[in-house]
Design a protein around this nucleic acid. Structure first.
Lengths: 328, 328
DNA sequence: TTGTAAGCGTTATCAC
DNA sequence: GTGATAACGCTTACAA
């Protein structure tokens, strides 16, 4: 599949009639006699020389490569996040090694080892392990889940997002709220959405209930719950906050099938800010995560080597956006 | 960001009391005396040794790393394709270096150079350059666009997909068909969708028109065209084939706003097989691309080093799936 | 079968 | 400022 005989520095040196070290200096931008530089550059051009980053990496122990651990790219949130992360890394001169973990802690561990073998300069992980830890010598930043105090975690301001959802529903006239959530076994930043919602409800003196399910379970309990709370076509609730857009969309579909009007009878707010790929519109009214900003923050944190104490948790601001499931 | 002092083979050899070469053999699965192997394995375990793939790559000129050139991950097709490619590569023991090119030929060229510097074993590209060529020593496979006869291109059977769309619409009772397409400047496999559609229409003696726009233009001409062909609420067409699901969804939305009923008045078929992330349902009736199969084929073609003459173009079978915009 | 040693293409340390 | 030279960690003849 390869045969490889790219020119090496030695070839360039010979072609330019200079010593090896001189070529290295030119390539690394270290000052060198003007005429030497020109010769070397000409030789590089002529031979089509291109550095071998494996040789360089072996020597310097830096590879300009970052491992990206993602559960899947089927979910638009992960996909766009990966897009932004990769673009951002490239802007900083880094390449990204993508690893799909399939929500599997075992696979995540394997990927970390793979990354270590590959001497990646750092790891950015959206993980489903409670305790993923890289080799000590490798920098790591997580997204949406804390993995220990030495590892910064960046996320959207989930708590505030929950508050905003409650505030918005209240402002739009809702008086009886419901919080629906799918949660994974292991705790993460995402769990704070409910906390913010509750706090705001209490502060606003609005009645609320909540129902939380495990993400590996079926949604049947949600449906049962909703059905029990619809009497003669009139629902007990006039506003629902779902902890993901996905859930909000699914509940909207279900309620519509039950003859409930959205947003007339029930208003619905999700979380994530997922847009429809065809129209670019939000798939439901939602709390929008600042994906590009999350990516940039994660990259800066990872690459920032100033050693200044970094906060262990960075929350980025979210905002509400109407998407057809609220009366606005 | 790094401090690196992982144990090396030398450390393992010392720990195990054997020679360096022996350690190497154990690691590479080359037969070695049982007791030696045990010692070495124990030492590896104890020290937490892990190969340095940069040193290995430097020596062997193989890196087990493949560059993935994608225009963006915002489109679900690219995202799922990237997911499948990466998963498939991992299964084969390869890592993928993701590069987002933003539909920009210049960026694509830069990525190719980056890949070359990084000594990737191969490149899989979904490119928007007419003539992207890697360094001679690097294997390449493209998806959906031909880049020269030496570079295999894998795609869905676009021509057949066009035929199927026409046949299906005919079968569902359509008598006046329309083909709508957005096309990029540079030719690609995707262009064949229209050819297949036309051929089938002629074969079936069904009247059809077509309107094709550049992908960088506005959609206004589409809307004008449709409006001109709706007289007193009755459209001239009873079936439309759009060359992407995205277009089909957009046209559906537009037609609905004009008071046209879908699928009662007009039936619509798209192409790609995009599913909604929340419900998993097709976003419109569609010709489904076998994404996982495309990924597997691309990977096999890239990794297959048998040197057997590979076909320059591989078309994978597609199928029709109803998605609410046809009467079935 | 096991051990030894010569590179792979860089970078970095020195004398010059 | 320039040019030999020694690593970096590994694979692979080749010698024992």
């Amino acid at each position: 599949m390869k045969k490889s005989n790219s020119p090496t520095m030695k070839d360039v040196a010979r072609e330019a009639g200079v010593a090896l070290g001189t070529v290295s200096k030119v390539i690394n931008g270290i000052p060198v006699g003007e005429s030497y530089r020109l010769h070397v550059e000409a030789a590089i051009e002529k031979l089509g020389y291109c550095v071998n980053s494996y040789a360089r990496g072996l020597k310097t122990n830096r590879t300009n490569c970052v491992a990206l651990l993602m559960p899947s790219l089927y979910h638009p949130f992960f996909a766009t996040l990966t897009d932004e992360l990769t673009a951002c890394l490239m802007r900083h001169g880094y390449r990204s090694m993508l690893m799909i973990t399939n929500y599997d802690p075992e696979a995540e561990k394997k990927c970390l080892i793979l990354g270590h073998e590959n001497k990646v300069d750092g790891v950015i992980a959206l993980t489903y392990s409670p305790d993923l830890k890289p080799d000590d010598s490798t920098a790591m930043v997580t997204i949406d889940r804390h993995c220990g105090d030495s590892i910064p975690c960046v996320s959207s301001d989930n708590y505030r997002g929950g508050e905003i959802a409650a505030e918005k529903l209240a402002e739009l006239g809702c008086r009886r709220l419901l919080f629906m959530a799918v949660a994974s076994d292991i705790p993460g930043e995402v769990d704070k959405r409910g906390g913010g919602f509750e706090a705001a409800c209490r502060r606003l003196h609005i009645a609320y209930e909540q129902i939380i399910l495990h993400d590996r379970d079926t949604e049947a309990p949600f449906y049962d719950f909703l059905l029990r709370h619809i009497r003669e076509g009139v629902p007990d609730f006039d506003g629902i906050f779902c902890n993901t857009d996905r859930l909000a969309c699914r509940m909207r579909d279900f309620l519509l099938r039950q003859g409930i009007r959205i947003p007339e009878d029930i208003q619905l707010i999700g979380y994530d800010g997922i847009t429809d790929y065809a129209t670019g519109r939000y798939t439901c009214s939602t709390i929008v995560q600042p994906i590009a900003q999350i990516a940039e923050t994660a990259v800066s944190l990872l690459l920032d080597t100033t050693g200044l104490a970094v906060p262990t948790n960075i929350c980025l601001p979210v905002h509400y956006a109407p998407g057809g499931t609220t009366r606005e």
